[in-house]
Design a protein around this nucleic acid. Structure first.
Length: 667
DNA sequence: TTATCACCTG
DNA sequence: CAGGTGATAA
């Protein structure tokens, strides 16, 4: 494989300045990707030109811009448009490069400053392009070569233009760019359209990424530049820049980018006026060098990631791979990927796990390796809106609008449990407890939220639950972090288990745990109000966020055993007390919510008293009490196994646990 | 043999 | 609430 071109390209373009940075890091990436994928045929210069395409409407304003751009930029634009979703006006520009002011587009307002700004833009575009573009772009005679280079990237994928390409291409380029391109037609002849669409999509994603990176570079550049020239800092308000409707998809990023661009160009022009052309040229050089380094690094970075994604077949990317993709890539991939299996929430959960990482990657240029903790943290916080579930009250706000910075979850700023719960719970249970007969009527008293978010209200009203849930939320946020050292025993979240758990219950995909938490204990206690002898299947069904194994099952069974133990002890105690109290008629023994027996039981199973104990439990309790009373009255307690008969009766009184318990791992 | 249970203990 | 134990049923 011919690796000389990219090396040469980068070195030439940087004119010796680039190597000072870290060529060993970026160049191999660039090289490898250049040849591995057809997308590599798009040179970085071409991409940059495309990105800045709309900033060079008036290339005539500056001769040098015109000189450098006339061929290449136009060619790039026209070619990119074949697959890109970019604006249509680029085609217009391409039609008459170098001598064209877009008038037919109609989307651009031609105010008096337009020429001015466009001229500035052209300069900056030129600078950037020279830095990241073709090694020979500075030579007038090679403008043709730039054109060829860019065009070749497209032509190479089409066999019928092969000869033409070979005629015009320098040899080293032919080897490098034509290598993968030559292989491609043979393998993709039967699925040209599909491949084209795929490439278009990838290109679009690439453009998005590039725009982001360029924006960052611009900011860096401005930072450096303003340090050098602080008196010009106030001259950054030249953005009366028209906004092209055709580019509305890039509103936030590109508009910002435009402003920065205008500012840069304005500063460049001021320097020209004051200092003079030569000085300006020299400073421009330094700027160029700076930008070269930054851009080259960023471009390689971006291209590397783009190709890393492209090298995979697109749909079978592992989540880890997706995590390192740009947000745009991620979104695009998710859009293409069919919803897997029967779980509808799962892909979104994956997105939630992926997107934050990606965003953070781009939010900070230094964030080359997002920490695990941050990923998992975002996993909880930055979940995109899920498909509205039937039971969710419409008034419940979705805290994570797409593409916006949602609720910021930060460990450094302690949050109230309710905040954590709100975000944790909102996407967990989809059923509303507000209408459930088991919910305590008093629950609506304290918080207005209880109307719209009964689930949150439930959880928040229990101090025990709140603290547990807070841990729960943080545990989830910690991702693959063992939180045993806090207070939760055996609580470990393993990313590897996400999938299986998500399959079992997509709503619980964020809270998959290997161990039982206090929340689970509380839930089990509440379940005891319905079932004293739950089967293993019931336990598995109602603890979908728990990875069941022998130990876990035993523990849960043991819990219920302990519950029963306490229950029967209380029953026996109160039955004996009734006998001691001289109650003769069994009908005088009732269990109401005011009775002491119930208070004892409720204190044990529903300590926070935030759960409305079902009436059935009152009945069962009363029956149990009667059974004990009868047995003791009949002196059956002399039999060592006299309780067995009672157990036999009680175990038949189990009722079904409400479905709400399935969708919630905590109450 | 395994699972479940009640009982006891800490 | 968990650990241990013995009984019991599958």
């Amino acid at each position: 494989m011919n690796l000389s071109l990219p090396d040469q390209t980068m070195h030439n373009s940087s004119e010796g300045c680039l190597e000072d940075d870290k060529p060993d890091v970026m160049l191999p990436c660039f090289r490898r990707n250049m040849y591995d994928e057809p997308l590599a045929s798009y040179s970085s210069g071409s991409i940059i030109s495309q990105l800045l395409r709309k900033t060079i409407h008036n290339k005539r304003a500056l001769d040098e811009s015109h000189f450098y751009l006339s061929g290449s930029a136009a060619a790039d634009s026209s070619q990119e448009d074949q697959c890109s979703v970019s604006s249509k006006d680029s085609t217009v520009e391409a039609a008459s490069p170098g001598a064209h002011v877009p008038t037919g587009a109609g989307t651009e307002v031609e105010h008096p400053m337009a020429d001015h700004l466009q001229a500035k833009r052209a300069r900056v575009e030129n600078i950037i392009r020279v830095m990241a573009g073709s090694p020979n772009s500075r030579q007038p005679g090679d403008s043709e070569r730039c054109d060829t280079d860019a065009r070749d990237t497209r032509e190479a994928r089409e066999a019928y233009r092969e000869n033409k390409r070979k005629q015009r291409l320098p040899q080293h380029q032919e080897h490098s760019v034509g290598g993968p391109a030559n292989r491609r037609p043979g393998s993709s002849s039967n699925s040209d359209n599909c491949n084209k669409d795929e490439e278009c999509h990838k290109l679009k994603e690439q453009l998005h990424s590039m725009q982001r990176l360029l924006r960052q570079l611009q900011e860096k550049f401005l930072h450096v530049y303003n340090q050098e020239d602080p008196e010009n800092n106030d001259r950054d308000d030249t953005e009366g820049v028209e906004h092209e409707s055709t580019e509305s998809r890039y509103v936030s990023t590109e508009d910002d980018f435009e402003r920065k661009n205008s500012r840069v160009t304005a500063e460049c022009k001021d320097r020209m006026k004051v200092v003079g052309y030569l000085v300006q040229q020299r400073e421009s050089r330094s700027l160029q060098d700076t930008l070269k380094q930054e851009l080259s690094r960023a471009v390689n970075d971006c291209v590397d990631r783009v190709f890393k994604k492209a090298s995979s077949t697109g749909q079978d990317l592992s989540p880890q791979q997706r995590m390192c993709s740009s947000p745009e890539l991620q979104i695009g991939a998710d859009r293409k990927r069919p919803q897997a299996g029967s779980s509808q929430e799962q892909p979104q959960a994956e997105e939630a796990a992926v997107k934050p990482c990606s965003l953070e990657y781009y939010e900070s240029s230094e964030a080359h390796s997002p920490p695990d903790q941050t990923e998992a943290l975002s996993l909880v916080v930055r979940k995109p809106p899920v498909t509205p579930l039937s039971s969710v009250t419409p008034t419940v706000k979705r805290p994570y609008p797409m593409h916006q910075n949602p609720f910021q979850f930060s460990y450094s700023t302690p949050l109230h449990d309710s905040q954590i719960l709100e975000h944790l719970l909102k996407y967990g249970p989809h059923s509303s407890f507000g209408g459930h007969p088991c919910m305590a009527p008093s629950m609506d008293r304290n918080s207005p939220d209880s109307v719209d978010m009964p689930w949150d209200a439930i959880a928040m009203r229990s101090k025990v639950t709140s603290s547990h849930l807070a841990h729960h939320a943080r545990a989830s946020a910690l991702g693959a972090v063992t939180v045993d050292n806090l207070c939760l025993p055996h609580v470990k979240i393993e990313c590897g288990e996400l999938q299986s758990m998500a399959d079992r219950n997509p709503y619980m995909s964020l809270n998959i745990q290997e161990g039982l938490t206090p929340s689970h204990l509380k839930k089990a206690k509440l379940m005891f109000f319905y079932t004293r002898y739950p089967s293993s299947n019931v336990l598995k069904n109602f603890f979908p966020d728990v990875k069941f194994n022998r130990c876990i099952t035993s523990q849960l069974i043991k819990w219920f055993s302990n519950f029963r133990e306490f229950y029967y002890i209380q029953m026996e105690k109160f039955a004996r007390q009734a006998i001691v109290d001289g109650i003769s008629d069994i009908k005088d023994m009732t269990v109401s919510r005011d009775s002491e027996l119930f208070r004892a039981l409720n204190m044990h199973y529903n300590k926070a008293n935030d759960f409305h104990v079902p009436d059935r439990f009152m009945e069962v309790s009363e029956i149990t009490l009667h059974e004990f009373y009868s047995a003791i009255s009949a002196a059956k307690d002399s039999d060592p196994s006299w309780k067995k008969a009672i157990y036999k009766v009680i175990c038949k009184l189990d009722s079904d646990v409400p479905e709400e318990f399935k969708t919630s791992s905590y109450l």
